[in-house]
Computed example of a mutant assay.
Amino acid sequence: MSGAEAFAVLGLISSVIDIIETSRQLYDAATSAAGLHEAFRAVAIDVPLVLNILRDCKRIQEQAYRELRESKDATRIRELSESAQAVAPVMEACREDATRLRAIFDKVVPGEKASRAERYQKAAQAVMPGKKRRVEELMKDMLEKLQLLHTNQFFRMATESRARDLDGAIQRLATLPPSLPDGAAGRVDYHVAGSMNLNAGAGAQSVYSQTGGSNNRQFHAETMNFGND
């Protein structure tokens, strides 16, 4: 990995910090906002821990980047390069989780208490299909990714002193009641007359047509082909 690529890893870490920092007011508001699931408060409480670890990682990567540029020792250069290469996917995953968390908090925390549950479900639907959607899952995933840093010889110190805090935060999030019911984020509700495709994704398709009385029809198709008459 070149010095430029190592610098890109430093940029990744900085990006995650910036995403969380720019959402700090939302997280602070969530600790006392009425009408929010307790998972929002749990996530907000864990934000300082995440930021402290990320800031330590940033300092470590800054030092590694300087050393990588200045060192003439091939073995040391390889070690620094391999370290940055291993950390890159961890920080990329953290950036994805932080971005999704910010999007959900931004849509749910502000505004009236009465509509927060509805806004949360809509915000969860906007998260990329197939990915974690609940706020507690996103934060837990981020903490678990940071926990992996203890296997890296350079970044181990960023998590060693906070290992107990990380374990405790992950356990608390794992034991929370789900902030959304299973399937709620991907559910399709249909309340008008006509045909309804029940499968919103890939795979077999079930179609239900309600026109009233004996004209109701339902069928299940493994393959459906559409074309012009």
Results as ranks from 00 to 15, higher is better:
Ala44Ile: 02
Val135Leu: 07
Leu138His: 13
Glu38Val: 08
Val90Arg: 11
Phe155Lys: 04
Leu173Trp: 00
Ile53Leu: 07
Asn197Leu: 04
Arg102Ala: 04
Asn228Gln: 06
Ala93Arg: 15
Arg78Gln: 14
Ile17His: 01
Leu138Asp: 13
Ala202Phe: 14
Ala185Ile: 04
Ala98Leu: 11
Arg134Asp: 05
Glu5Tyr: 15
Cys94Glu: 11
Gln205Glu: 06
Asp229Gly: 03
Cys94Trp: 00
Lys145Thr: 05
Ser161Tyr: 03
Glu222Ala: 12
Glu222Pro: 00
Ser71Glu: 04
Ser32Trp: 15
Lys131Gly: 15
Ala29Met: 15
Ala29His: 03
Gly186His: 02
Thr175Gln: 14
Ser179Leu: 02
Val90Lys: 10
Pro89Met: 10
Asp97Leu: 10
Ala93Ile: 15
Asp73Tyr: 08
Leu12Ser: 11
Ala200Gly: 09
Leu54Gln: 08
Leu54Trp: 11
Leu54Arg: 13
Ala33Val: 10
Lys145Ala: 11
Gly3Tyr: 03
Val108Phe: 01
His191Arg: 02
Asp165Tyr: 04
Glu67Lys: 14
Ser32Asn: 14
Gly203Cys: 05
Glu67Trp: 06
His150Gln: 13
Asn152Met: 12
Leu80His: 04
Ala4Cys: 03
Ala42Ile: 13
Ala221Asn: 10
Val109His: 02
Glu79Ser: 10
Phe154Gln: 04
Gln121Lys: 14
Ala93Phe: 13
Val109Trp: 00
Glu62His: 12
Ala169Val: 01
Leu148Ala: 12
Glu79Lys: 15
Val47His: 04
Tyr208Asp: 08
Ser81Thr: 09
Val90Phe: 14
Val87Ala: 10
Asp73Gly: 05
Ile170Met: 01
Arg59Met: 12
Met139Ile: 06
Lys132Leu: 15
Glu79Leu: 13
Gly130Ser: 11
Asn199Pro: 02
Glu67Gln: 11
Leu68Gln: 11
Asp165Ile: 00
Gln61Trp: 11
Phe155Val: 08
Ser115Pro: 01
Arg24Ser: 11
Lys140Arg: 11
Ile77Glu: 09
Asp165Val: 01
Ala74Lys: 14
Asp229Ala: 07
Met1Arg: 06
Leu101Lys: 01
Gln205Val: 10
Ser161Lys: 02
Ala30Gly: 07
Ser83Ile: 00
Gly130Glu: 15
Asn52Asp: 12
Gly213Gln: 08
Gln85Val: 09
Ala174Thr: 07
Gly111Gln: 09
Asn152Cys: 10
Leu143Met: 03
Pro178Val: 03
Asn52His: 05
Tyr208Cys: 05
